[in-house]
Amino acid sequence: MGFEAPQKGNPHKLTVNQHVFPRKSINRFSNGDGLVQLFRIDGVKVISASSTNSLFCAKRVWDQSTEAGIGKHIEDRFQNLVDSILAGYTKVIGIFEKTIVEDFFSLWRTRHKFRAEGLEDFKLGGIEGNSLTKDEQEILERQHVMFCRDGVMPGRFAARIHVFGYMNTFRQDNMHRQWGIVRAGEGEFIVPDCFQDMMIVPVSPKMVIVADQPNSTLTRSEVAVINQTAIDRSTEYYFARSLSACPVYRDSPPRLQRIFAN
């Protein structure tokens, strides 16, 4: 386990800095300068950051197939849905949209787990693997092919198996759950590095998609409850377009008590 640097110059253009939360989603929260305000929990300070900042990334924790294959497919479907919602074409999260939202939420949460815990290399019994040069290994990975080295497979290749597994389990566990498009009447939303067990998907400073909540417009106090939830679930950082525009409040208003009760 651990970061494996590509060859000098990265000739096969393998993705090294892998976004946990997509760049396009982060950019929707950026200000006119293309930056978000990010609070680093370890340093207890606010910094301005672009979506390319390494804080938003894992460092080659999952393989190229997971990044550019299944991951990109899930992201693209979600971003198309968000564009449609923001343009006013999609007004409800129906059966089709529900799958897109849940797959994206599962991917986000899974990537966050990979970044925090890594993926251990694993030995395949009875398989020694071929003797491959570094260049040959990178060519294979670029073509979404797995390989072994002395019978040991790099842990990042297990990522795609976990992504599918977690995603299918999440779908099954939430088969009857409904999602709503939720807007901030006052204030703006905070984005955590992950919402963990709370099924909330950030869309823009004024919009989130929330499980077990109908389409609605929230008061300032209700926005503050979601923001407090974001802060409480954050492990390394949280961000917003402008943190000063984001109210924070610990006591749940009645309409949100069922969803956010501990």
Rank of each mutant, 00 (worst) to 15 (best):
K123I: 06
V145E: 13
R77C: 13
D150G: 02
A87S: 15
M146I: 06
F114R: 09
G88L: 03
G88C: 03
T99Y: 12
E97L: 05
D42Y: 02
K123T: 06
S48P: 07
K134H: 12
I127N: 07
I95K: 14
N27G: 08
H144N: 07
I26C: 07
L107D: 02
R149Q: 10
S84N: 03
A68Y: 02
V46Y: 14
C148L: 15
I74N: 03
W62P: 06
I74C: 06
I139D: 04
S106Y: 02
W62A: 06
V36N: 10
Q64S: 02
G71F: 01
L86Q: 08
G129S: 09
V44S: 15
L107E: 00
V46K: 15
I41Y: 12
T110I: 09
N31H: 14
G34N: 11
W62Q: 07
Q37E: 15
S65L: 11
D103E: 03
G129A: 08
K45G: 11
L35N: 12
H19S: 08
A58N: 10
R23H: 07
G126Q: 03
Q18D: 12
T133N: 11
E102R: 06
R109E: 13
S50V: 09
W108G: 07
K91D: 14
D83W: 00
T52R: 10
F122L: 04
F114P: 04
D76F: 01
A58H: 04
I70Q: 12
G126P: 06
G129K: 08
S51E: 08
G69W: 01
G69D: 00
I70W: 12
F96Q: 11
H19K: 08
Q18K: 05
R156W: 03
T90C: 10
S50N: 14
K91M: 14
F157Y: 15
G69Y: 01
V44W: 14
F29P: 07
G32I: 11
I74E: 01
I139A: 08
L124C: 05
Q18V: 06
S51N: 00
R40C: 12
K98P: 03
C148R: 12
V36Y: 01
Q18N: 11
S65I: 01
G155N: 02
D150M: 07
L55V: 13
M146E: 05
Y89S: 15
N53P: 10
A49D: 07
T90K: 10
F96K: 14
A158N: 11
K59A: 13
R77F: 10
N31K: 11
E97F: 06
K134L: 13
T66E: 04
R60D: 11
F122V: 09
A116Q: 09
F78E: 04
N27Y: 04
S84A: 10
R109I: 14
L55Q: 14
L81V: 08
T99Q: 12
Q143A: 14
L81Y: 02
S50E: 10
Q137C: 14
I100H: 03
I85Y: 11
A87Y: 06
Q137V: 09
G125T: 04
I100N: 05
I100K: 11
V152E: 05
F56K: 01
V20P: 07
D63S: 15
T99F: 11
D33Y: 06
H112F: 07
V82S: 10
A159N: 14
D103V: 01
K91I: 13
D76P: 02
S84C: 00
H112M: 01
D121L: 07
A87R: 12
